[in-house]
């Protein structure tokens, strides 16, 4: 009987994913109402629960995809995979105010440059503090603090060791996860409650998954504005990492 159930769940993976995530959402909104009187958004709790389950998924299976590595739950992978994620993010743009968007252009570009610069410097300084001195490792770890994609892309281009590349990916993952969890709590203190600051926030943090989840947990109306700038962040980081940023670090470190 269990085998038959298992067969149904795995061959209807996406449908099972809807059911599991739906139940998680229900539980999260119940916790939100029951224990925080709605002060902590249900979506924030749901995202946190998702991350927590992902931790145990990784702990028990040794895989890299969190809960999805548990074969019965692989449908969640399709539901939260790049295809449906991007599809849903684009859909949130429907109803965005064009004037609001036009005003966001210049601050968006400035925040992208500041965001990549500040994350990179943060990564390099921490790497220095932990005893790394060669330009290649410093740049790779700094790039990892930009996003977990920029790190390995940069590292591969400038010839970093696989150990340093793994560290840079971990730094980027920590950043993405922390943005997801911390944004709803920090938002009131940094004025993250309007399209303009959402655009700036997207450009400063840049990690698409972090920004997408962090804003969803803060105020879903802000999602399209933040995701719009964040969409350019990783590519700009991949462009600057192995070139300009590497040359600067090499110039200083040498």
């Amino acid at each position: 009987m269990y085998e038959a159930l298992q067969k149904v769940i795995s061959s209807y993976g996406l449908v099972s994913g809807f059911a599991v995530i739906g139940a998680t959402m229900w539980l999260s909104y119940w916790i939100s109402q029951r224990f925080t009187q709605g002060r902590l958004h249900g979506s924030a709790i749901a995202i946190f629960l998702g991350l927590l389950l992902a931790y145990f998924g990784g702990l028990f299976t040794g895989g890299k995809k969190g809960l999805v590595d548990i074969s019965v739950l692989s449908g969640i992978g399709l539901m939260g995979g790049a295809m449906l994620r991007d599809f849903a993010i684009v859909a949130t743009a429907f109803g965005v105010n064009i004037d609001e968007l036009k005003r966001a252009g210049v601050p968006g570009v400035i925040s992208l440059l500041f965001g990549i610069g500040s994350s990179f410097v943060a990564g390099v300084v921490v790497a220095l503090a932990f005893g790394y001195t060669d330009a290649v490792s410093l740049t790779t770890i700094g790039a990892g603090a930009v996003t977990y994609i920029v790190g390995p892309v940069t590292g591969a281009a400038i010839g970093a060791s696989s150990e340093v590349m793994a560290l840079s990916i971990a730094a980027g993952l920590v950043k993405a996860i922390l943005v997801m969890i911390a944004t709803p709590f920090v938002a009131p203190y940094i004025g993250l409650n309007n399209p303009r600051t959402a655009v700036i926030f997207g450009g400063l943090m840049g990690t698409s998954s972090g920004v997408a989840a962090g804003l969803a947990a803060t105020d879903p109306k802000l999602v399209p504005y933040g995701c719009l700038t964040a969409a350019f962040y990783t590519a700009l980081g991949c462009l600057l990492g192995p070139s300009l940023l590497f040359f600067i670090v090499r110039g200083i470190a040498a």
Partner: peptide, 11 residues
Amino acid sequence: VVAMAAQQNVY
């Protein structure tokens, strides 16, 4: 996004 969070490499 919750489904996406559930497949992050948190560990």
